[in-house]
Amino acid sequence: MLMCGEYMLSIDGLGSIDTVIKILLVIRRSRIKFKGMEASTNGGVRVKLCINGLEDEVSWIARKIENIANIASVNLLKGGC
């Protein structure tokens, strides 16, 4: 279904700032609009991304990020930013 909207990606994993960069590198070459983010690397990596785009594209982005080494989980929420 071609539904455009705002989504929150909540990502947990291991590593350092490089893990955050890897997530951003996926985002920057996708067809979604980056709205904002929060990131912390305190004992693990936690990133919250606010993005806007088509549901199919956002779901694909979530799967791409889940594939990154050291990513433990990705949760996709409609709205929530």
């Binding site: 199919d56 694909w60 889940e66 594939n67």
Partner: peptide, 11 residues
């Protein structure tokens, strides 16, 4: 085996 390939170019 790669979920990131599903729907990338052709749904």
């Amino acid at each position: 085996i790669d979920a990131g390939e599903i729907g990338k170019n052709v749904k």
